[in-house]
């Protein structure tokens, strides 16, 4: 209840920001500035609409470049009018972003400063530069505080609260557990890797969660790869269940079924799946296991 309210508040703020930028765009003197502000507004609007979506998967694209480049362009086009916006760089640096992006943002900020100080007397320009450096450093400090939070989110085990949809670290744990359980008890476990187009990934994941038994989970390995552990009484039933599952699927995909009886490395299998030409590859355990 409380968190729903907060999510709604955040969305309202996003829409408010979009409207405000839109209004600014309509007031701008310069066509380029209008376009840039309009784009910024649209970006905020899209963010508010896709909020749910961005929760599904941790963001893998450097979206932080969008506000950064828009801001740099805006300050370049009309430094006189949007001078106050220069300080926003400190807030942009605070956002979670991959380390390689920070020098890029820093470079863009320096460029904006250079453009702004052209219209100022040298002393004032220098002062602005020093203060900008200081607030950007403060922003970096803030980002360092928040790092454990962002890292925790990108490494979280469960993708969505309440759904049987997990991430790679959880699959690694579950693989270990299931392998041990299979060795101890006589049931059959199979790792099924599915590779599909990025846009099919989410509907496929939801479909899988609905189709599988309630004690089986779905894992997301990357933008195109999903995994599940099929647990069945014996190899025959496992094969029947897998075939039934793959036949009813309505999305084009490649699959790789790996018997947990053998030794396999998850990341290698995932890479092999991405390169494989056949629609389905089945890796059975080595025959030696049967004799033992």
């Amino acid at each position: 209840m409380d968190s729903k309210y907060k999510a709604r508040l955040f969305r309202t703020t996003l829409v408010g920001g979009a409207l405000l930028l839109g209004w600014q765009a309509s007031l701008a003197n310069d066509t380029t500035a209008t376009v840039l502000l309009g784009l910024g507004g649209l970006w905020l609007l899209a963010t508010s609409l896709l909020q749910e979506q961005s929760l599904r998967w941790p963001a893998l694209l450097p979206w932080q470049l969008v506000p950064g480049s828009l801001l740099a362009a805006l300050l370049w086009v009309d430094p006189g009018r949007y001078g106050a916006w220069l300080w926003l760089w400190a807030i942009l640096v605070m956002l979670p972003q991959p380390a390689w992006l920070l020098p890029v943002q820093g470079g863009l900020a320096a460029l904006s400063w250079w453009r702004i100080q052209q219209d100022l007397i040298p002393e004032q320009g220098l002062l602005v530069g020093l203060l900008l450096g200081a607030v950007v450093l403060l922003g970096l400090g803030r980002a360092l505080y928040l790092r454990p939070l962002w890292q925790g989110v990108s490494r979280r085990q469960r993708l969505l609260p309440g759904a049987r949809l997990w991430t790679r670290p959880q699959l690694v744990r579950d693989l270990y557990r299931e392998r041990l359980r299979c060795e101890r008890k006589d049931y059959h476990a199979e790792l099924l890797l599915l590779h599909t187009k990025a846009r099919h990934c989410w509907p496929l994941a939801r479909w899988l969660v609905a189709q599988l038994e309630p004690d089986e989970n779905v894992y997301r390995l990357d933008r195109r790869t999903l995994a599940t552990l099929l647990i069945s009484r014996d190899a025959g039933e496992g094969e029947r269940r897998r075939n039934a599952l793959l036949e009813t699927l309505s999305w084009p995909l490649k699959a790789r079924a790996i018997d947990l009886g053998g030794r396999h490395v998850l990341s290698l299998e995932q890479r092999a799946l991405a390169r494989q030409a056949e629609a389905l590859v089945i890796l059975s355990p080595p025959k030696a296991v049967d004799h033992a």
Partner: peptide
């Protein structure tokens, strides 16, 4: 340059 300086206080507060 007043416009320029106006931006500093709110941003600093957020930092």
């Amino acid at each position: 340059g007043a416009g320029l300086w106006l931006g500093l206080p709110p941003v600093l507060a957020f930092l």
